[in-house]
Write a protein that binds this DNA or RNA. Structure first.
Lengths: 206, 206
DNA sequence: CGATTAAGATACGTCTCCGTAGCTTAAATA
DNA sequence: TATTTAAGCTACGGAGACGTATCTTAATCG
């Protein structure tokens, strides 16, 4: 008697199976967390056999690293027009969009537990954060500084981090990314004043 | 023959034992993470019997909640002198000091995994973040606004978060809290400009 | 001091995951 | 089509944690 289970007759190989496994490990990470990632769990979710995983990877973390490596988005930084405020806003919107990616969720989990799994964190920085520029608003700020529209001396490490830091903090506090209005407030009330382009009064009534 | 193990002759009870268990669960959390907290691990580390834990708590998370509840620091906000910059700096220093606390490490772990363990996160906010004011720089800003030294309309939610957000981001990026010089840069380059007290040129050469 | 309370020690069956072995069989390749 | 390659399936002993039960005994209280 053949098995005749629900698993049908088709046997996936190579790329198709690989993509399924990558999706499975990211989903598993989101559900059970980094500390409970397990070969059995990944195999279950991917609908494959544990032995097939062990043929390619030695541990759940190795599977995860491969998944992160292959799924990273790799989008370019925003090209700057002649609209500093709009470009800053778009840069933060790109950041928010990326934050809702499965890869970003995985990255957050890894960063949060970096003390426990330093190799994972190191690989993450190497393969994701360094690969994509990382810096969202900094790209914009440098562009306008290069064109003499803002004082280059104002673009300190602290100033370059303001936008990202506030988006991050908002996401942590509210458990949701900031809205476009909140992004605008970040630009108007924090970033622009820091580069010497503050308005005389708050833009958002409050 | 009695056991004569290293565990000596003294049997701890009540408060002493409880404190040991609280320390154990925080240490265990730091070492293995929230997803791998285990009654056996806590018992081992506290040098007590698993059965003694089950008599009081139903799960590792319950032990952890008790520990957080009892260990929270509860320090008061900085009293404001007539030195806005200095008070902001001191507020951020208080934040940095708290971040190095075991309770803060536990809080970070819980916040990072709040999607997975929402009851834990809820309890954390209730028992820690609400209990202590939470807001470090906000207390200072409100004080000076009340005394008319800064424009109250400038103190928006975004502006109130700038200091904390940058400290947090620095800690995440560098895996270490910011130094006093870096705190000063945060105050001078981000917070003060946002409340309309920016200097004409950057304070820290860079 | 005697009685009561709470902690320590041990043991148990059950689960889940570990990593590996062996075999079968579908898919790709020559 | 025949062969090779890679995936699926099942099973195993080992480890660690689960939650509970039982018994002993130290600490505390009346």
């Amino acid at each position: 008697m053949t098995k005749a289970r629900t698993e049908a007759r088709t046997r996936r190989r190579g790329g198709e199976l690989l993509r399924s496994i990558h999706a499975a490990v990211l989903a598993e990470l989101a559900e059970v967390g980094l500390g409970r990632l397990t070969m059995e769990g990944i195999a279950r979710r991917a609908g494959t056999a544990k032995t097939s995983l062990y043929r390619r990877w030695a541990s759940p973390h190795d599977v995860l690293l491969d998944a992160i490596h292959d799924e990273h988005p790799e989008e370019a930084a925003s090209p700057a027009a002649d609209d500093l405020r709009g470009d800053l806003l778009r840069a933060l919107q790109q950041l928010v969009a990326w934050m809702q990616t499965p890869t970003a969720a995985a990255a957050a989990a890894i960063v949060a537990e970096r003390k426990r799994y330093p190799e994972l964190a190191a690989a993450l920085y190497e393969r994701v954060f360094d690969a994509r520029g990382g810096r969202f608003t900094l790209t914009v700020l440098r562009h306008y500084a290069a064109h003499g529209q803002i004082d280059a001396r104002r673009i300190t490490p602290v100033v370059a981090d303001i936008g990202e830091a506030l988006v991050l903090k908002h996401a942590l506090d509210a458990d949701a990314p900031p809205s476009d209005e909140q992004l605008a407030a970040i630009v108007d009330e924090a970033i622009l004043p820091a580069i010497g382009l503050g308005l005389d009064r708050p833009v958002t009534a409050r």
